[in-house]
């Protein structure tokens, strides 16, 4: 079974900076890590490979530094890693990202049985890219998958849609996004990481995919625009109480009573 997992590098801290001009995130010179949801997707892929045999290819779209998460995936046990990187991809929104990944998957994943995406990222947070790629590839897709069994021409999955648990079979090739359930990702092997050669990660640019697609990717191919960014405007209509006041407990109780959230119990 050939499995392709798409992963992303995200900022390692919450304190990210926004480029005031483009409204996109500044990625330069920032600590980065693998998107935690992708670790779960990878683990799901490795367990499946261990059960049925085959290979796991990891793909990441991002700046050249994203090489690091692909190496980490190789050290965890991936067989092949591809970095999709090009200046032309900068400023991509969901659709432009999905187009770039779909082009990549058509090229390097034409013989794949299963494409796996993490549920969402911790930076973009939209949970949209996976399903959009499936639409562009015109293959069936299921979100929030928490178990996978392999069969000849299909996979059998269980997905958790809110309080609904749905079991289904999906024809191959297909795309799934993985429910963030409890699945402990394996640690990268230090030995593997050390022995990776400098060309362990294959690099693909726009010209390798489709040079004519320039207006379909990156900022040019993104239908959405950030009009403006601004600090949250909130009303400061609040009552401020001093936590050091000796009757602070009582003041809070009085507030609950006023808000009809508590009442005195009248005895007798």
């Amino acid at each position: 079974m050939k499995i392709v997992v798409c992963i992303k590098q995200v900022p390692a801290t919450q304190e990210v900076q926004i480029d005031p001009i483009t409204g996109t995130m500044k990625r330069q010179g920032m600590d980065a890590k693998m998107n935690p949801y992708d670790l779960i997707a990878l683990e799901q892929a490795f367990q499946l490979k261990e059960k049925v045999g085959g290979s796991v290819t990891v793909i990441s779209m991002g700046p050249t530094q994203a090489d690091a998460v692909l190496r980490e995936a190789l050290a965890m046990g991936a067989d092949q890693a591809i970095l999709v990187s090009d200046r032309a991809f900068g400023g991509s929104d969901v659709l432009a990202t999905a187009r770039t990944l779909a082009m990549t998957l058509r090229k390097v994943g034409s013989d794949a049985d299963l494409f796996i995406f993490g549920h969402q990222t911790t930076d973009g947070d939209t949970a949209q890219v996976g399903p959009a790629v499936a639409a562009l590839l015109d293959i069936p897709q299921a979100s929030l998958v928490r178990s996978i069994d392999n069969h000849d021409s299909f996979i059998e999955i269980e997905q958790k849609l809110g309080s609904l648990i749905q079991r289904a079979t999906i024809k191959k090739p297909c795309l799934i996004t993985v429910d963030p359930h409890e699945l402990t990702p394996r640690l990268p092997s230090y030995w593997r990481l050390r022995t990776l050669t400098s060309d362990a990660v294959q690099l693909l640019g726009l010209a390798d995919l489709d040079a004519s697609a320039k207006t379909k990717v990156g900022i040019l191919g993104s239908p959405t625009r950030v009009l403006r960014i601004f600090p949250p405007q909130r009303s400061t209509k609040s009552v401020v109480l001093d936590g050091k006041a000796s009757d602070i407990g009582q003041q809070l109780v009085e507030d609950l009573i006023q808000a009809h959230l508590a009442e005195r119990v009248i005895h007798g």
Binding site: V240, D247, G249, L252, D255, L261, A262, E263
Partner: peptide, 27 residues
Amino acid sequence: AHVGVVGDCYSVIPQWIDALDQGDYHV
């Protein structure tokens, strides 16, 4: 917030619980 308490949770929360317990309130 509608009501903000500038203070240390470790002292404000116990006082709040105490006040609720002592006054016999139904919440």
